[in-house]
Each structure stands twice: as C-alpha cells, then as structure tokens.
Design a protein around this nucleic acid. Sequence first.
DNA 1: TTGTACGCGTTATCAC
DNA 2: GTGATAACGCGTACAA
Lengths: 350, 350
Amino acid sequence: MSVNPKNKLTKVSPTSIPKVVTLDMVAKEAGVSSATVSRILNGTAVVSLVRKKAVDDAIEKLGFVPNLVARGLAGGRTYSIGVVTQSLDSPFYGSTLRGIEEKLLPFGYCPLFVSGQWDAEVETRCIDALRARRVDGIIVLTGRMTDKALKSYAKSLPIVVTGRALTAPGLVALNHDNVEGARMATQQLIDLGHRQIAFISGDPQHPDAIERLLGYRKALEASRIAFDPALLAEGGFFEASGLQAVLELIASRKRFTAIFAANDQMAVGAALGLSRHSLRVPEDVSLIGYDDLASSMYANPPLSSVSQSAYELGQIAADVLLQMLAGTQPVFELPPPRLILRESCRRHVN
Amino acid sequence: MSVNPKNKLTKVSPTSIPKVVTLDMVAKEAGVSSATVSRILNGTAVVSLVRKKAVDDAIEKLGFVPNLVARGLAGGRTYSIGVVTQSLDSPFYGSTLRGIEEKLLPFGYCPLFVSGQWDAEVETRCIDALRARRVDGIIVLTGRMTDKALKSYAKSLPIVVTGRALTAPGLVALNHDNVEGARMATQQLIDLGHRQIAFISGDPQHPDAIERLLGYRKALEASRIAFDPALLAEGGFFEASGLQAVLELIASRKRFTAIFAANDQMAVGAALGLSRHSLRVPEDVSLIGYDDLASSMYANPPLSSVSQSAYELGQIAADVLLQMLAGTQPVFELPPPRLILRESCRRHVN
DNA sequence: TTGTACGCGTTATCAC
DNA sequence: GTGATAACGCGTACAA
C-alpha cells in the first residue's frame, strides 16, 4: 500500500472581494490617472517606478481584478478562443481539448468549448454563438460543415480546423494521414500471416472513415490480396456498432482471422462480440483499432491501435492559432500515425 | 450492413458577414432609435408592430448579430456560466459536462469550462479567471478547494457544487450518496456468497474515496463479516492504480473471491491484473466498479457497476443554477445510486 | 512620463 | 410607445 508523499494541506485563501473594484478606484487610491494604471496592467508604456509601486500596492490592497468583459469591448480582443468539438464526452476529443487548454492558458487565452453534435447546422449555430461572443479565433475539430462555409468564416476570423485538407486565407487545416495509418495497421496484420482480414468501417459520412477504408485496401493491394466486400462491415464509430458489425460478420459465416476496426471504440465492441461467440482475442482472431485511446492500454486484452496523438493534436492546433493571432506565418509539424502494438494481435497459424 | 436512413445533405449557408454590424446601424436602417431596437431584441417593453417589422427587416437585411461582450458590460449579465471540472478528458465528468451544456443552451446561457486538475490552487485560479470574465454563476464539480473558500466565493456569485454536503447562502451542494452506493455494491457481492471481498479504494485525499470505503465497511458489518485490512488496497482512481492494487493483493497471497473497486477505471485495471495471473472474471473473481462509465457496458466482460448518472448530475446542476439566477428557491431531486448488474460478478461456489 | 477625453456596443433611466 | 442620454469598465490617441 503506497503512501502519498505530498500530503500538502489544501488551504487556499480565496481572492473573494464581494465589492466590485474598478480600475478607476485603483487609480484614485494610488493617486494617479486611470490611464497609468492601464499602462501598468498591460505593459503598454514605461511608467516611473514610484507610481508603479503605488499602483501595485493599490491593486493588492483593493484586490482589484480586471474586468475582462470591459477589456474585450474596449480593446477589441477578448483573449478567448472558440473551440467547436463534436461531443464533450468523446474519449478521443477529450484529450484534444485538454491539449488545447494547456497550450492556451499560459498565453492568457481561455478556450470556449461548444459542441457541434456531428451536425452541420448545429455547428453553424455554434460558430455564430462564438462570433457573437467575439472570440479572437476558432478551432474546429473535424466537423460536418462544408469547406466552403468554413472558408467563408475564415474571412473574418482566424480558423484552425482538423481532419481536413484545404487551404484558404485565414484558415489552417491540420490533416492526419488516415490512409497511411490504416495501411500500417492492415500491413501489420498481413505481416503476421493474416489473409482474411475483416474491416469494420466508420460512419461513411465521415471523411476519416473513407480514408481509413482506403488505407485498408491499399495494404491489401500491395500484398496482392483481393479485396472482399463480404469482409467489410459498416459501423458508426461507437462501441455498439462494433459489436453489431462482428455479429453480422459471424452470422454471414464468412471466415476471417483478423479484424481491423476504424476506431478503438468499435474495436472494443468487436472484442465483446467475439467473446459472445467464444472467439478469443488474439488466439482465434487478431484485432487492431485506431486512435489509441487512453483506455485501450487497459482493454482486455490490451488493444493494438494506431495512434494519432489526440493530445498533441490539440496542442498543435492551439499553437498554430496562437501564431496566426501573433501575425506570423504558422509553422508546425504533425506527428505521423504510429502503430502501437499490444496483445490483441498475433501471428496467424493454420 | 445497415444503410444510413437520413442521408440528408450537409449544405449550410454561413451567416458570415465580415463587416461588423452594430445595433445603431440597425436603428438607422429601420429609422428608429437604438433603444427601440434593444427593446425588441430583449422583449423589454411593448413596441408597435410597424416598427418591430421595420427593425426585424433591418436586422435580417444587415445580418446583425448582437455583440455579447458589449451586452455583458452594459447589462451586467454575460449569460455565461463558469464550470470548474477537474480534467477535460475524464470519462466520468465528460458526461456531466454534456449534461450541463445541453441544459444551459436552450436558455441562452453558454458554459465556460475550465479544469482544476485536482489541485486547490489551480481551482482557485480558475474561479478567479471565471470571475474576471464576469460569469453569472459557477458550477464546481467536486473539487479540492476548502468548503470555506467556496462559501466565501458564494457571497458574490451563485455557486452549485457537486460531491459535497454543505449549505450556505448563494450555495447549493449536490451530494451523491457514496456510502449507500458502495454499500449496495458490497452487499450484492455478499448476497452472491462472497466473504473475502477485496476493496480497491480511491485517492484517500478524495471525499468520494472515504465515503465509498465507509459503505464497503457498512455492508460487511451488517453481515457480521470482519473487516480485514489485508483486503484493502489503495488506488488513485486511474486504471494503472487498479492494476497495481490487484498485483499487490495477489502478491500478498491473501485469498479473495471478489473485488469491489471504488471506480470503473480502477476496476478495468484490476481486471487486467487478474488476467495477468490467469484469474478469470467472473469465474474466479467477481468484480464490481463504481460510476457506470459509458464504456463499462463494453468491457470484457461487461462490468457491473454503481451508477450515479453523471449526465443527469450535470443537467441537475445546471438546472439548479438556472433557478438560482431566476431568483427562485431551487428545488431538485438527486437520483439515488443504482446498481447495474452485468457479467462481471456471479455466485461464489466453493 | 503622465493625464484628459473619447470610443467600444449595448442596456437602463429618464423624460416626452 | 418612443427617443435622447447616461452609464458599464477599460484601452488609447492626443496633448501636455
């Protein structure tokens, strides 16, 4: 039984000052003009040390906290970034949100998360809501909206979007190489001696799904394995659909020795479906997923997967937006897909 | 292979108007005063139909979108609610955040999520940041901050906090009955004939952990089973700690036929640890978790768990805050813990 | 270096 | 009902 080393007390004195303190009050207290206080707060201009000391003391004494709403109105920048995710409880995007937040905070920016629910109309409303709140920029995670609509928004606001390949002024797209990731996963199964490899695709509306199917087929072709539509099962990126897909696959009596699922959630569902029919992973069927969710390491058995580092993606997206806001040409490097091998796949033996 | 029924086109026309349109411009266009436009926008007073029509047309024509920052400054309310969660990628709180968002949006409020990282100081900074942004109210999910600090904040801002039992003016606490939930889970294992029931606790700094241990002991006492410290393993609420705890338990050579883990993530880790030693769930060891994560239904085997309906919790928290903002005495009912039985536990046979 | 004065876009308080 | 006009709290020319 481990002992917690840092048993530090959690006593924290709140800054709570019920009264509202304004910059003007600080100015009065310090005996200077409000402009001087503002200058000190923003480092806009050089201020004499005596006055600076007086102002700092006054701020401390009164417990002054700048009103960011007023600052936003006056300065034109709100120091908040809109983030359109699809669902706040997505295990994949959750890490991305964390990456965004951690990158933004040190620079004084605060993310404003809204969810688009995989619906173009909802997304549009989200973006409009963010614009009404005068965010300084927007990060869109994948999304269903058309490229055209996105480009149009980019005219008035810097935008970073993931999961697409397009370029436009004021718009940077961060596109993960799904084809290559899927190819790697499939190739791995081929290298392990598998020839009947089933593929559980994602929602065909989703570009990721299409690209991953492409990568699957690409690997098969490279090894001169004929693509068999009977080995293709359509899923919807959630666990339930992976389970369903495997049940259909089994019911079809089509033989397969391995499954590549277009994401980890479906892979987990598939694993359950297999065990329902007493098929063991990896003894009877090898299994690989996609996304490398944090939980996949603890699946039973630990799931092999293609990592597209959701957390880093968030950090990069935020970083790129920060660069755009700074007015510099954004430079960035997207990590390539990485195959994470765990215990869910093994060599096929006849 | 299922066919997607709603193959609706995703064409959405963006509201994008690069030019900034102000309320004054609308007023000029409609030939009325800005006050009238504001009144129509907010329904503050009765306006003649002719003018209303003119204003509505002008709004439509110019594509006017109210500046919520300016509105916040002038009106004193920002229509945004601060939400202090602990980690944006928590599978448990993710559902809660979704519940909060879905409840708030229809009322014109927008949640502002920040994460406290299970650290009282970080939380304090979060709340200060939210106050600087002039949120109308705050929801704190559990949190490490002292009750005293929280009460102090509540003096200047309505606060809803989960995972605590305390009352104060301007403060409502939504407390889940952890003791009862843990008691139910343990009792279930006892009812199944288990007598050596190990308990993997959570981070002892966390009130939930303490209460769930209490519930575990309460159930044992009720059945006159002596509490055995050797069956207690300390975890930290993450998968890794559940795995570690089980390995320690096994290494200690202490016999046990069932495990109750203080949350699902540790339960999943524990399941992996058991399989590392060729112990099957539930044939050799029964297992119950806590939280009923969305993914637990698809664990292998599907995990029995105590549900505290994270999603509903979020909805209720938001609803209570909305009531406080409306000035009414909040009424609400917290759902009791529910035991969700799946395939990870079974009757103990000698 | 420092202060004055105005503007940011909206709501709220008056009179009419 | 409706329209001036004063806040709201801060940034920033401009002048000193």
